[in-house]
Nucleic acid binder design. Structure first.
Lengths: 210, 210
DNA sequence: GACTTTCTTTGACAATTGTCCAAATTTCCA
DNA sequence: TGGAAATTTGGACAATTGTCAAAGAAAGTC
């Protein structure tokens, strides 16, 4: 009786088989991202990834073709976490200065909170220069990030009553350069890194509109 | 007699033992760079590196402590090849427009000629976010590149009769962002990538001076 | 020319890797 | 409940890795 009650109480809600399959893939993808962000692409092994999950190392090849398939899946999953990161900032700001401030603050915040994930992104983007199989996924995410940045720049221009002065790809490249530099400096323990990033972003924004 | 003559004729000039030792290290360092730029950090093995040299794989541990020691040595060697890349451009230009044009052209040229080396640099810089042992060498090179860029920006400002508008680190980050984006696009076979880079650099330069 | 030192090769080593598979286990459905 | 399907395990595999050491070759020294 007690057993029956417990069993009923802890039974998860019904799921279709396909859902469960996807759930496993997502869990493994998340574990891959966690492991990769700690060790980097060069030193993350399937066994280590599996150990960071609730499964054994053999299960990976039941849900994925091979290691790269898993990593690419994880990379695509990563995209979801960043796409809408600045939408709140865009929606809530009412002046260009306020937007620039909030945007800069948000960039700083995500470096503090998710530095390992960001360094993984730069690692993977570099890997894609060597490994063809990573390119599609990387280029897709790169485009997504570009769009994300462009929404901020467009909104900034709107609030300033002006027009953007550069192509979307240019705006993304410039801000990405600042971000990447700040991330490296932050990981190297430079105190001023985040403060400088905020300054530089606030300084750059007006130059992106006519 | 003939033998003696030949022997004399082909004998290389006298070298101190230390010179030879350094020469070997340089040769292995160059081979490491060649291999790394082809395969990337994740897949370049000591045996592969040795195979790209005139030595066998065991010799590496005679001249270097371990793999990382060799790689770091190679990375420092890499610096020499890029430090003075734009000095000619700086020296020869007589107007800001001419400097911007020549600088942009030189950036495009080095992507065409040395794309593998540049992707290696970004790979290693990413690795340094995971691997402490790489940081010193990477940060040193990063500073060197920043100085190199700054000389261009300063000269541009001089020719324009103005003052730079941004910190050296900012100028470097912005241009590096553009360069990295162009490199990736170029390696992905996008035809317009290099042309766009030149445009964007020419467009950016005036914004860096007051 | 013999000896010492320096350099190089070759092979062995333990560890780690991605991949695969057979058996054990769980889940599902009739 | 019983059997079929799906899932999970743990180990075996061949290949590759960084490292090291013993033996051999070359260079230098007296």
């Amino acid at each position: 009786m007690v057993g029956a009650v417990t069993k009923t109480a802890t039974r998860p809600p019904r799921r279709l088989p396909a859902d469960k399959h996807d759930e496993r893939r997502r869990a493994l993808g998340a574990s891959a991202l966690r492991t990769l962000s700690e060790l980097g692409y060069a030193r993350a092994s399937l066994r280590e990834i599996a150990q960071n999950s609730e499964f054994s190392h053999g299960v990976v090849h039941y849900y994925f073709d091979d290691k790269l398939d898993l990593i690419v899946y994880g990379v695509r999953q990563y995209k979801e976490t960043c796409v809408r990161r600045y939408d709140g900032v865009v929606a809530d700001s009412t002046t260009p200065e306020e937007l620039a401030d909030a945007f800069a603050a948000k960039l700083v915040e995500t470096i503090v909170d998710e530095a390992p994930m960001h360094r993984l992104w730069y690692d993977l983007r570099s890997q894609s220069m060597f490994e063809d199989s990573l390119r599609d996924a990387v280029l897709l995410i790169d485009k997504t990030l570009e769009d994300m940045i462009w929404r901020v720049v467009q909104r900034y221009a709107d609030l300033a009553g002006r027009k953007p002065n550069v192509a979307p790809a240019t705006a993304y490249a410039l801000l990405d350069g600042l971000f990447q530099q700040a991330l490296l400096a932050h990981l190297c323990g430079r105190r001023k890194a985040l403060h400088d990033l905020a300054d530089r972003v606030r300084d750059l924004m007006p130059r992106l509109v006519a």
